[in-house]
Design a protein around this nucleic acid. Structure first.
Lengths: 240, 240
DNA sequence: CGAAGGTTTGAACAGGTTCAACAGGCGTGG
DNA sequence: CCACGCCTGTTGAACCTGTTCAAACCTTCG
């Protein structure tokens, strides 16, 4: 830990990849984005990678007729914008005011060519994104509105670390993330409140009164089925 | 190209990663799976990686109550079963009789530690899987039954390379892949046939009469929106 | 204080599901 | 060789979840 470089330490605590780049002497650029400001658009040349320092970022695709699917929300410490091909395959926008560290992708590419550790770090980040995307596939393909919203709240709880928190995103964002309409999301919130599972004091301000119950409603494990503790050779008997 | 080792050449034509492992002297194991046979189950120790040589494999998750979501179908030349963590996060089964090459994951791990090229190959494979998963997210989250089925047929067309082909998977598999019920898939097939877009002679045997129309119905690009040819700085104006 | 955007709620509607019956193909066995 | 049964797929009808359209309700910010 290089105490001579406090900025490095701060970044290091957020993400290993950016720490590596720091050590390798990559030029450091930070930028503040305002709410709803575009960070990059689908199809643009993928020349940078990003690290959320504060705030929240949404990654999404839009169809010709305007239908939008949000793939992921990224919070402080999350890296996004890693691409293997020449173009960004999704768009990214800040949801609220957000500080973002930016690095040249060329630097990263070069680093990963010469340093297996960096290459494996890239792989790890992509693997985690893939696992999440597949969990999300199960949600969008097979879960009901109530299950989706409950699972989303459990995820937010895990992210925030507390039962009481403010949602950084609007009902529309949640709807576009969960493959629903904003009305259905709103109705489901009201329903969960009526059942005493949550407490919506100011539409963005939530209190989860019964996380285990929400977890149960979400079905399985927040999103998708997690492997049971302690190996799983006996799982074969459960599988269809 | 080592003509002295014909097996290597064959494998090389299918996949770079497995070729690398071959060169590195990894023990070669192949296995034939029967239809519906499990290859691995979610939660099992992830000790192998697989390459489809012939046949088709489905990757999926199952919820407690039996709801199933198929994440992907893998055809000849596709690698599957690559995991970053200790356990498989999905299950895999052969859809029809399938020949599969199997390699020890430990070998791959060792290779990727010492050889950046292998590490980057792993990253590439995971990146492609991620891009596909995200395209699939848009389909499951935002598309209608007709769009899903049309997009699926276009994808199969791309995979098979011809307008006439046999579907390797059942209606249930297609439904679980597209987040629909088998009845809806069947009805949509009938509907597309009535409109003269496809010709279903024997329930598995298809002829796509109008691929461009199917592509159009699918909305955007088979699945998801592909970047336009030749850069895309001007895309910013299209993005929401 | 007033306007504007985000949210809630209501009522009608529709796409897809569910349950159920039927059809066709294929392998088995008489 | 044909009959039977099983499995897969198709079709029908009722139903339901979530959507759509519309109005009212905050609440926040200028």
């Amino acid at each position: 830990m290089l105490t001579a470089c406090p900025e490095i330490v701060r970044t290091a605590s957020l993400n290993t990849l950016f720490y590596d780049l720091q050590v390798l002497g990559a030029a450091r650029v930070g930028k503040r984005y305002r709410a709803d400001e575009e960070i990059y658009g689908e199809g643009e040349a993928a020349e940078h990678v990003f690290l959320v320092v504060s705030g929240v970022v949404r990654i999404f695709s839009v169809l010709e007729d305007g239908r939008r699917q949000i793939h992921a929300f990224h919070f402080a410490g999350d890296v996004f914008g890693i691409e293997n091909g020449p173009f960004y395959s999704q768009s990214a926008e800040a949801i609220c005011g957000a500080d973002v560290e930016i690095r040249r992708r060329a630097t990263l590419d070069a680093a990963s060519m010469g340093d297996c550790w960096t290459a494996r770090e890239l792989w790890l980040l992509t693997s985690v994104a893939l696992r999440r995307a597949r969990d999300h596939l199960v949600v969008l393909g097979r879960k009901t509105a109530r299950e989706r919203v409950s699972g989303f709240l459990v995820d937010m709880h895990r992210q925030m670390g507390t039962e009481i928190f403010d949602l950084p995103m609007s009902r529309v964002d949640i709807a576009d993330y969960l493959g629903l309409t904003l009305e259905t999301v709103s109705r489901t919130f009201s329903d969960l409140q009526r059942r005493g599972l949550i407490d919506v004091s100011a539409c963005r301000h939530l209190r989860l009164c019964d996380v285990p119950a929400l977890h149960r409603i979400a079905g399985g494990g927040g999103t998708g089925v997690r492997p049971p503790a302690g190996g799983g050779a006996d799982i074969e008997q459960i599988a269809v």
